[in-house]
Structure formats: C-alpha cells, structure tokens
Design a protein around this nucleic acid. Sequence first.
DNA 1: ATCATATAGTTAGATATCAAATCAAATAAT
DNA 2: ATTATTTGATTTGATATCTAACTATATGAT
Lengths: 152, 152
Amino acid sequence: MDLDDQRARLFELFNEIHIIQQLATTEFNRRLPEGLHVSHFAVINHLCRLGDGRTPLQLASAFQVTKPTMTHTLTQLGTRGFVDVRANPADGRSKLVYITAAGRAFRETAIASLNPTLDAMADDLDLPALLSLLPQLATLRRYLDTARDVGP
Amino acid sequence: MDLDDQRARLFELFNEIHIIQQLATTEFNRRLPEGLHVSHFAVINHLCRLGDGRTPLQLASAFQVTKPTMTHTLTQLGTRGFVDVRANPADGRSKLVYITAAGRAFRETAIASLNPTLDAMADDLDLPALLSLLPQLATLRRYLDTARDVGP
DNA sequence: ATCATATAGTTAGATATCAAATCAAATAAT
DNA sequence: ATTATTTGATTTGATATCTAACTATATGAT
C-alpha cells in the first residue's frame, strides 16, 4: 500500500466515523422527547451511572467537549430542572452539578425511548463483532485526545 | 452479558465514535486554511477523485448529509470560487457541480496541510489494525443508513 | 504581602447541521 | 390533457458546537 493510499484510507476511516456519528445522533435525537438532544441524555446518564456532584469541567472532559459547550448543555438541563448546579464549597471558581428527581425521571423516559433502537441494532447486527471494535476505538480516541494539545 | 449491559456497551460504542469524530474534525479544521471546514475539503476531494459533474443530491447522499446542508456547503464553495454549480441540461430541477482550477488548488493546499497529521497517526498508531475496522464500520454505516427511513 | 500566572466558568460571535416548509420541474394517473 | 404525485433544490428557523476573549478565584514567586 503506497503512501497516498494509506492517507486516503485513513481519511476514509474518519469519513465513515463521521457518517456513523451523524446518522446515529440524528436517529437518537428523533427518538428522544421533544427538544432534547442526545448530548443532554449522555450527561444525565453519566451523572446517574457514575455519581453526581461533578464539576462542569469534569463533565466536559468526560465527553471531550469544550467548556462553553458544557456550559450550554448544563444551562439547557438546568432550565428544564434536570440538574442543579451549585457553588463548589471547596473552590470559589468552580461549581458542582447534581441531578434532580426530574432528571432521573427524564433518564428513565429517554432510556425507554432509546432501548428499542439499541435492541434492534443488537438483533440486526453482529453485536460481538461490533463491540470488539471498542478497544481499538478507545485507543484511537485516547491518541487524538493526547495529540490534541500539541501544536502547531 | 445481560441486556442492560449490552445496551450500555452499544451506547458506549456510539459515544466513542462521537468523541473520535469531534476530536478528528476539530483537529482537521485547525489544520485547514482559515475559514475552511473539513466538510468543504471532503466535497472537493470527492469531486477530484471520483469526477465532477455530479448533482447536489448525489453529493448529499455520498456524505449522508441532508439536502440543505449540501446546499449550504456548495454555497460556501461557490462563494470561494472552488466549484461551479450549473443548471443540469438533462433535468430542469437539478444542477451539476463542477470543480474549478481554484478548487483543485485548494485541494492541493488542504492535502498538504492534512497529510502531516495523517502521517503522524500512521506512525504512532497500529495502522493495519485501525484500517481493519473499516469493513465493520462500513457495515454499521450501511445499517444506520438503511434503518434511517423506517419509522416510527 | 504583592503581583504574576494558572484555572474554572461564562459571554460573544461564527458556523455546520438538522427538520419542516416551500418552490419548481418532471413523471404518473385518470 | 389535466391533475396529482414525486423529486431536486432552497428558504426558514432552531440548536449544538467551536474559537477567542473575558471575569473571577486560586496558586505561586519574588
């Protein structure tokens, strides 16, 4: 495989990933209740599964989005009453994000909306083969994350 | 693996893909000349490699974006003089997209900007293992594309 | 102690994307 | 032929995301 070919196939890999992300995000967004985005669900889900009382920065880091993006997402979630963002007693610059009862209820609803789609995928696709991609993808993700802040 | 676990891991797969797409897109966008987005490059690249004179709809379909998105991208490219969008003599509703000399020049510049990043990845990562993901990802992409227009 | 630097979060502005609705042309049906 | 349906593209309006710049607090250096 020559160099140009190598580059083209790597680019193709990212193109496939881009398309999958687009289609999956669009699909999930369609299934979720009106006005709610999969990025909202992901944050709520994270707080429920791994515990709340985390800072916005920790959340931004967990999802690899920028700080303003997380500010925006948390504002949306706060407006809907799904999270409660309080001052961090240990650090005056910082805040802590707590999930509310309404937030937990939203998670249940969202899960009920998304599970049929996930289950259909599990039925229609070779799930073990798909999930076997996870380690490779995680490696790639870590690499990109690390390579991120080395310039130029 | 129980059902909930299966769902959680599938969702995790999409989360990884989402993060990779975010990081890769951001990285590529940083490398590209001012004001140009990787989605612009992808269209130009496609036209150069596989031939121009395609319709906006064909392009939208190739990248799995919606028609308005492709209209927007082509408007941007047209404004910069990278493509020429003409009426389709064979169909009054349709148009044909041609690449210009400036468009080809932009592609060369863009490739020169992106190749170092791609080459660094090829050096730092296990490229054969990465590229071996392509068939599985293509299968997943085709599945999502097909499942897209079945309701509800 | 004071001042410089680093860190957490927000604000401002830009843009890529989507869904829904619209318009125009082509095709199909009666 | 005329009308209805389908198809290609655009317009409109909303939103998620990014970068850059800003504010406020915390930490470190002299």
